[in-house]
């Protein structure tokens, strides 16, 4: 009797989890590490202490992501990083890092726009944009900070929601996402005027 009851409970649990599971494909690669965020402390600490070996080591961890941005989003950013490193210009490196973060936010929001019909992937991308914003939020003045936060919240709303077993489902809204993207990037532009020059 007990076993029957436990069995029924287990089947019920599996049924609910299976039914509730979003059907869309999901790439865990998209939710992986972010070298630009993870290596920033080491890079900035190296600059502060004048320890350029540590700076170069931290930059090595970011290099493939910077190369990606250079090839796809912001032509010239990798060369600018190399030049600043060679000349040991800390202030330039700091502003380049901000520029790279803005590029990453733009890149993820563009990805969400392109995959807006794939709820899980679009959500991963907006959440990733939020992570980059949170990492650079300290550098933002209150006005752009509020504008970016508001824009990213709207972006998250705009990708819709499949709902729970269809209940509460909300269709994605590409127009609202485009508006949110535009507002976010406009607010971030003064922090990194050269960001996304090839995007």
């Amino acid at each position: 009797m007990k076993f029957r009851l436990f069995g029924a409970l287990a089947v019920f649990a599996l049924f609910i989890l299976a039914a509730a599971s979003p059907a869309a494909a999901y790439s865990y690669a998209a939710a992986g590490k972010e070298p630009l965020i993870e290596n920033r402390e080491a890079l900035l600490s190296g600059i502060d202490k004048g320890d350029w070996q540590s700076v170069r080591k931290a930059y090595a961890g970011m290099k493939s992501d910077i190369a990606y941005l250079d090839a796809n989003e912001d032509k010239g950013i990798a060369g600018a990083f190399d030049k600043a490193l060679a000349a040991q210009k800390g202030d330039v490196l700091k502003s380049l890092l901000r520029r790279a973060y803005v590029d990453e936010i733009e890149r993820r929001l563009d990805g969400a726009r392109d995959q807006i019909d794939d709820y899980q992937n679009a959500k991963v991308l907006v959440v990733k944009a939020q992570k980059f914003y949170e990492a650079m939020a300290g550098d933002l003045e209150p006005k752009p900070r509020a504008a970016v936060e508001d824009g990213l919240k709207r972006a998250l709303d705009a990708i819709g929601n499949p709902g729970l077993f269809g209940v509460g489902a909300k269709d994605p809204d590409p127009k609202a996402l485009a508006e949110a993207r535009k507002d976010v990037l406009a607010a971030l532009k003064p922090s990194a005027p050269e960001a996304g020059s090839s995007g």
Binding site: L17, A20, Y26, L164, F165
Partner: peptide, 10 residues
């Protein structure tokens, strides 16, 4: 189940 349905693998 509700949490998983709302947030998915994320």
């Amino acid at each position: 189940a509700v949490l998983y349905a709302l947030e998915g693998p994320l």
